[in-house]
Design a protein around this nucleic acid. Structure first.
Ligand SMILES: [Mn+2]
Ligand SMILES: [Mn+2]
Ligand SMILES: [Mn+2]
Ligand SMILES: [Mn+2]
Lengths: 218, 218
DNA sequence: TAATAAAATTAGCCTTGTCTAATTTTATTT
DNA sequence: AAATAAAATTAGACAAGGCTAATTTTATTA
């Protein structure tokens, strides 16, 4: 049985592994969790002792099969609870992440499966992230961002890479949701700002960071 | 904001206060939580500093209005989650308490109220305990136990005082639920064992401890 | 390659929440 | 009232999980 902290580290490592296929370093983990690298080194030792990760100076941190299984279950619970909070309790898009951050740690063998069934086996969470099935498999994850679209191109929003309420509320203000159609009218060469048209409406300009936070399907 | 441990202590004090109107001592709290009295003394200091309890050597521990408010909210969340787990996720009577023990600590201002609404504002939890409303008020709590019934008397089970799976599974085996009618046929003078008839069926003998754990309405 | 910068690690400290053992207070019995 | 038992408290320890500051490694840059 893993502690709450161990679970949060596992989930963080899982996310870094999915996001960038890059080397997962103590500093990367520290940045991601808002912790000190020294604390991360301590936890790397604990998780290594529990055989949930392997740490190699060259390759960085990697999840073992056991660690991947544990991490996947935490992600499954997180995303299922997000669906519950949005669909059953009527929370908004930007409110659910932090609550699910706590709920994902509720430990009961059959809870995730019962919740999954109760929710009708959803494939994606409200942010467009695929929900791992009981067997660990999950639907397609998208990786193309709005910033990757070429000028003139059309696309459809399928997921958000950033789940902070700041970003989600900004999206709401712009009228962007999962499924919204966007046309990239122009890329400003100077700072990679993006001029877009949302659902065919009047154009808006958004930053490069914004574009990189929105996952799309062409 | 209270920590998980502080919340568990507050809830424990609340329960001891409701159960017996008696003096709440460090040893009583220690026994109830399975902790050491020395640890309890430490926590009494913390909760006193936070002005959630008042501790008087003569009167024992008492909740302040602020402490009572916090404790009531934890109990509200616990009982609402129990209803959710039983009614929506299909858990059994004896499985829900331990899970709710974790879920009661999820912190979000509107969560209890949303859950309450989603569940249709239930008055009682699956163990027959009244669920505090948002304003802190709650339906009648029963205090008469099967052990208080006089020989020959009839009664109806309204709640269980003990929520351990051992007791609940025993009840299940005997065919006793909330609402079950019981006739007390005889009290054995020797050890206060009770000879009962469940829903008018063949007689069974149960212990005094059993009788004191079952709340009834005459 | 040497100098410098960045990353990783170690050492030592802190808080929370727990424990055991020893001591002091309070209650109960003779 | 004195003796004894029980309860409460203090003192000191420990594990988890975090921090800062110092040091050692590893990468970069000149
Ligand atoms: Mn979390
Ligand atoms: Mn999500
Ligand atoms: Mn609890
Ligand atoms: Mn209950």
């Amino acid at each position: 049985m893993n502690t709450l902290s161990e679970e949060n580290y596992l989930k963080c490592i899982y996310r870094l592994w999915q996001d960038k296929g890059q080397k997962i370093t103590p500093t990367a983990i520290a940045d991601s969790l808002g912790n000190n690298p020294a604390s991360v080194v301590d936890m790397i030792r604990k998780l290594t002792d529990k055989q949930l990760i392997v740490y190699d100076k060259k390759k960085g941190v990697e999840l073992t099969p056991a660690g991947l299984k544990d991490a996947t279950l935490i992600v499954r619970r997180h995303r299922l609870w997000e669906v519950f909070l949005l669909e059953k309790l009527g929370y908004h898009w930007d409110e659910i992440h932090d609550i699910a951050e706590e709920m994902e740690h509720i430990k009961d063998l059959t809870l995730a499966d019962r919740l999954d069934k109760f929710l009708g086996f959803p494939e994606y969470d409200p942010h467009g992230d695929p929900i791992p099935k009981a067997n660990g498999k999950m639907a397609k994850r998208y990786s193309t961002t709005l910033a990757d679209v070429k000028a003139g191109g059309h696309c459809r929003v399928v997921a958000v890479k950033d789940t902070t309420s700041q970003f989600l509320q900004y999206l709401q203000k712009l009228g962007i949701n999962i499924g919204t159609r966007i046309q990239l009218l122009e890329k400003i060469a100077f700072d990679n700002s993006l001029v877009i048209s949302i659902n065919g409406e009047e154009q808006k300009t958004v930053s490069q960071k914004f574009g990189e936070s929105l996952l799309i399907d062409l």
